[in-house]
Computed example of a mutant assay.
Amino acid sequence: MSGTREAATKILAAHGIDPDTSDTSDASSEEEVSKLLDSIRDGAWLDGQHFPPLRYAVDGLLPEGAALLIGPPKAGKSWLVLDVLLAVASGGRALGALAVGAPRRVLYLAMEDGDRRMQDRCRTLLGDDPIPERFHYVTDVEPMLVRPLLDAFLDRYPDTVLVVVDTLGKVMPPARPGESAYSRDYRVMGHLKGVSDDHPGLSVTVIHHDRKAASEDFIDSVSGTHGLAGAADTIIVLARKRQSDDAVLKVTGRDVPEEEYALKMRDGVWTLDGSTLTDAAAQVRQRADAAELGEKSVAILDYVRQHHEGVRARDVAEEFGGDAHQYLKRLMESGRLIRLVRGLYAAADVPVSEPSEVSEPNEAPCIGCGGPLDPVHAAQGETTHPGCDPAARPRKEA
């Protein structure tokens, strides 16, 4: 047996294929191996490809692919996704702020609702506007019929851009004999991900409950095994305390930046706490600061964050009073501020302008020796260096 034939036989056998050992099977065995290797691509092929840009149901938040939306029961997950669905279907603004473009078709598997509740919620969210024609929904489908239903709908309406399954528990099939919990979770989520993979540009979002146990990593809040999170392209967690109208939307994924966005609820309607995702991310930080810092510290920190090129200590003192240097020092010690150069401060969580755009601050001179004062000392009202005698400073001749 030739080396090539022997290698082909081993490869086929490893995959459960029983190659014919007759002399006439050499070509067929090698042909099977060739088919296996044909799936391997090289850098030259990849470098020559031109892929279409990634498409979003909601720009920056919900890209094509499979997403998991996680949150505790009765936290408002269904209200959140319905707002997004109606915005996409009508061409409005998701969460009251995020433009979604022209009207596009959506499908909602609302397995915990009925027609009356669906109508009431749509009218609450839309006000006097009609329920958009491109909004489709179903309230009852057997777990084993979910994929056939989605395939049939997408064949009829290939322009669909968003499908929401609410909830995973309603469509989760029983485990197969001998199947582990992880294997079942990965299989089911992978099955739903396959729907988006088969339809480029489609976002499939699946709602699921969180774990009761607290975790530092919000991905660990997904109820069930890591098979669910592992199969998903995007993970979104709605974090909200009971009796609170404020929430945080925590997002991570293969095609979205990992970030947290502030939300607020008014009369059952979720809105972004800010006019953009950037503003909402900043609002999350401000909420955290307000919970840990005093009012003046929060105000100074917000003031510094507004100056991406850095802010001078004396400018802070002029704005907030002579004791501002104490607050700057505490904010530096807590890691919220950094010192770019002497007397120039910036927020640690805000990108700073290029060094060429940041100039050495023009400190007030010491009236004793004429050298520059530290801006922090100047902010305290000091006019000389320790040990300098103003009277000893040489006078300029007229």
Rank of each mutant, 00 (worst) to 15 (best):
D115G: 06
A181M: 10
R156H: 11
G178S: 09
H136N: 14
D185I: 12
L107C: 08
M189I: 15
T167K: 08
E112I: 11
K193M: 06
P148G: 07
V141N: 06
L126Q: 08
V171Q: 02
D155R: 15
V165W: 01
L154R: 07
E112N: 08
R134S: 12
R116I: 11
A152T: 14
A152E: 13
R176F: 03
E112G: 08
E142K: 14
Y137L: 11
P130D: 07
I131S: 02
H191L: 13
V146I: 13
G169N: 13
T139Y: 00
T139R: 07
R176H: 06
V163N: 07
G114C: 06
G127Q: 05
L162Q: 06
T124C: 04
D166G: 09
R117Q: 12
E133S: 08
T139M: 08
S183N: 09
L150S: 03
G194P: 01
F135K: 03
D115F: 04
L149Q: 09
K193H: 10
Y137P: 00
E133H: 07
R121P: 02
E112M: 08
T160L: 07
Y186T: 13
Y137R: 14
Y137I: 05
D166I: 11
P148N: 07
V141P: 02
R156D: 10
L149M: 13
R116Y: 02
R121F: 00
M111T: 14
V188L: 10
V163H: 05
L162I: 10
P143N: 11
E142S: 13
V188C: 03
Y108F: 13
K170Y: 06
S180P: 02
K193R: 15
L192K: 01
T139P: 01
D113H: 04
P132V: 10
E142I: 08
Y108C: 02
D159G: 07
R187W: 03
Y108P: 04
Y157E: 12
L192M: 00
Y108Q: 03
D113W: 06
D155K: 15
R121Y: 00
M189T: 15
A181C: 00
I131R: 06
D120G: 03
M144G: 05
V165D: 00
G190W: 04
G127N: 06
L154T: 11
Y108R: 01
A181S: 11
S196E: 01
L162M: 14
R117F: 00
G114L: 06
D185V: 12
R123S: 09
D113P: 02
C122L: 05
V195A: 09
A181N: 09
V146G: 07
V163P: 00
V171H: 02
A110D: 07
D129V: 05
R134L: 15
M172C: 04
P148H: 03
M189E: 03
A152G: 09
Y108E: 04
L126G: 07
E133T: 14
T139C: 13
D129F: 00
E142F: 01
E133I: 10
L125M: 11
E142Y: 05
M118W: 04
L192S: 01
V195I: 15
D115H: 11
R123D: 03
S183V: 10
T160Y: 04
T124Q: 13
